[in-house]
Design a binder for these strands. Sequence first.
DNA 1: ACCATTTAGTCAGGTGGTCTGACCATCGTC
DNA 2: GACGATGGTCAGACCACCTGACTAAATGGT
Lengths: 161, 161
Amino acid sequence: MSVCDEVRQDGDPRDHGGQGRQNLALLCFYPHRAMEARLLATLAAEGFDDLTIAQGRIAARIGPGGTRLTDLAAQALVTKQTANHLVDQLERAGYVRRVPDPTDGRARLVQIAGRGQAVVALARRVEAEVEAEWTAHLGEEVTAQLRAALERLREITDPYR
Amino acid sequence: MSVCDEVRQDGDPRDHGGQGRQNLALLCFYPHRAMEARLLATLAAEGFDDLTIAQGRIAARIGPGGTRLTDLAAQALVTKQTANHLVDQLERAGYVRRVPDPTDGRARLVQIAGRGQAVVALARRVEAEVEAEWTAHLGEEVTAQLRAALERLREITDPYR
DNA sequence: ACCATTTAGTCAGGTGGTCTGACCATCGTC
DNA sequence: GACGATGGTCAGACCACCTGACTAAATGGT
């Protein structure tokens, strides 16, 4: 999915795939989508079938000691309302809990709760597995180059670096 | 946004950004998101403020000679219903048109229509501009390596290659 | 101390995107 | 020419997300 790929330069009428030079952003999209799909499918298969993509995107940004709702919203690039809504669902399902922030009476920290720990562990395994497959396909050196380039690119494309 | 980043390995309590080693899929996500946001903002600023992200994602996959709805849906990984709905909107707004497929009485080809041509041209310009910025940041050689690595990765992550 | 401003979070209402399920028309084949 | 597969549409529902308006607590200047 991508507004990015607003365009295709290849010239084959009725083309179905697109062999032309694709823009970089679109190329970035495929691995991301593949990982997301794989992760969601595996989690569902292992019994966590009540997780949605949006919930995962929020949950993924919870730090070890808990994270404020506002920070979650900012990092995920959604509004506080949306983040709040998703955290509500996650809390109801037992994946996270909200505790008061000891350093700020207004704030509460969203923390991974019991059921969430299991999901995180599983997700970590799947991630490592998929990355290993990619490394096997690309080779160690190219993978390292890829990671380095993406990390540098992040400097100018991630507003919350 | 990413279920991909289900996990963070860094250990700083109350961390807000994440300096630890990020998984590759998440790293892929930042450039994609940045391009999408830039594209949407520019298009809106130039008067195409009735375009949504989802519409762009569908429109982006229309080939020069037109593309079938089913193919658009498959490539964008959405259902035919969703694709149809989005094409309806694009058609109503004058960006695309539907013509009968001469080779198949059941099918119709979605083609870029008058107003869509202007968008495509503008989008192409913005894409080139953003890629140029990235190249300036990374350097020619690293950019070329990045593209090559992503293209190879696409071989195993894009089901509609 | 006090008030103004900012920040954390919530509530209400609405739109858009996406899905599942059921359905019709046409194609290709035996 | 009948039948399974394919292209597309219709109906209804849910989820994600947004804008706008609001409360409560922290912060900073006088």
